[in-house]
Design a protein around this nucleic acid. Structure first.
Lengths: 190, 190
DNA sequence: CACAAACCATACGCAACCGTATGGAGCTGG
DNA sequence: CCAGCTCCATACGGTTGCGTATGGTTTGTG
C-alpha cells in the first residue's frame, strides 16, 4: 500500500515576492520587522527559500531600496518630464501621480513614510532618501521657475514639505492627498 | 515645564538620564536601537542599573512617550494659548516655538520625525501620535478661524503638513524651519 | 562608626534570529 | 525514466538581547 504523496501544489516564490513581502512588513512593523524568519513565516515558507534567492538579509534590503529608487525616478521621468508639460501644468500632472498610492501588495500608501522611518536606522537608506529629496526638489524648482514664481527654491521646498506631511497625515488622520496638494498649489501660485 | 539638566556626575544615574539616552538612541538608530544592553553600554554602565530604575523595557518606552506628550502639549498651552495671542499672531508665536529644536541631549531636531517612525513599529506610540495630530490640528484650525480664513480646516491641515515635512527636510537637506513656515503662513493668509 | 537604603555589576537561563550545511521534493530535457 | 537543475525544509552553532537573581559598592543618616 502506498501513501499518496501530498500534493501541496505550492506556488514557488520569486525574489520579487520576497521584496513585496519586505515592503509590507516595513509598512506594518517598521524596520525591525525586516527579518528573515518572520518574513518566511508570513509567506508560509521557510528561510531555506530566502537564502536560495538572496545571499543574506542585506541583499534583500539593497534590492528593496533599488526598486523604490527605480519607481520614484520613473514617477518623475515617464509621467511628468516625458509628458512635455511645463510649469503649473507639470505640477498638476505630478499631483495626479503622487495621489495614487502604490499597490497594497507593496505596502500601499505607507511606503514613503515607512521608508523615511527606515532611513533613520540604516545609513544606506538615509543616503538614498536624501538623494531622492534633492532630485525631487530640483525638478519642482524648475517647474516653479517655469511658472515664474518669485522664489522657486522656497516654493519647491514648501510644496515638497507639504507633500511629505500629507503622506504622513494620510496615515494618521486620513487626509486627502490630491485636495491638499491642489490647495497648496493655489496658495503658492495664485 | 522645563527640561531639567542632566546629571553630569556620571557616577549615579536617574531615570531621566535613561529617558534622554532613549531619545538619543531613537533619533540616531531608530526604534531597533531602543534596547537595554546597548543603552547601558552607551551610558557606560550595566543593565543592572536600568532594571533598578525601570521594571522593563516597556516601562522606559511608556515614560518616553509620556514625556514627549507633556512637552508637546506644553508647546501649545504655555507658549501660545496662555500668551493670549489670537489668529495670525498666535500662528507667528507658534512658528517661533516650533523652530526651536529640543536639546541635543534629548535627540535634538530629529525627535519628532523619529517618533513618527517609531509609531510604525508600536501601536501605543501610533495612538499617541495620532492623538497629538488631532489636537494640534484643532488648535491650528481655531487660529485660522480667528484669522478669518475661508477654509480653516484645509489651511490647518496644510500648515501642519508643511511643518511635518519641513522637520523631515531639516534632517536630510537642512531646511530652515522658521523661514519655511513664515512663507507658508504668508501663502495661506495673504 | 554603624547600618540601612539606594544604586550598580555580574552571571544565569531563556528565546529569537542569522547564516550555513545538507538532504529531499519537483520539474525538465535527453 | 533518470539525471540534473531548481527550489525548499530542517537541523545546527553562534550571537545578541531580555529579565531575574544575587551580591557588592556607594551614599545618606542617626
Amino acid at each position: 500500500m502506498t501513501i499518496p504523496a501530498l500534493q501541496t501544489d505550492r506556488t514557488r516564490l520569486t525574489p520579487r515576492d520576497w521584496i513585496a513581502a519586505g515592503f509590507r512588513a516595513l509598512v506594518n512593523g517598521g524596520a525591525p520587522a525586516l527579518r528573515v524568519e518572520p518574513l518566511a513565516r508570513g509567506l508560509g515558507t521557510s528561510k531555506g527559500s530566502f537564502y536560495w534567492h538572496f545571499a543574506d538579509l542585506a541583499a534583500l534590503k539593497v534590492q528593496m531600496v533599488a526598486l523604490w529608487q527605480r519607481l520614484a525616478e520613473e514617477e518623475i521621468t515617464t509621467t511628468v518630464l516625458a509628458s512635455g508639460a511645463e510649469g503649473r501644468a507639470a505640477l498638476q500632472a505630478l499631483i495626479g501621480r503622487i495621489s495614487v498610492a502604490p499597490p497594497a501588495a507593496y505596502g500601499g500608501a505607507g511606503v514613503e513614510p515607512a521608508l523615511r522611518g527606515w532611513a533613520r536606522t540604516e545609513p544606506k537608506v538615509a543616503q538614498a532618501v536624501a538623494a531622492m529629496d534633492t532630485r525631487r526638489l530640483a525638478v519642482l524648482e524648475s517647474f516653479f521657475t517655469q511658472a515664474r514664481h518669485d522664489d522657486p527654491a522656497h516654493a519647491a521646498r514648501l510644496f515638497y514639505a507639504a507633500t511629505l506631511g500629507l503622506m504622513e497625515l494620510r496615515l494618521t488622520t486620513g487626509a486627502d492627498m490630491r485636495a491638499g496638494l491642489e490647495v497648496q498649489l493655489d496658495a503658492l501660485l495664485p
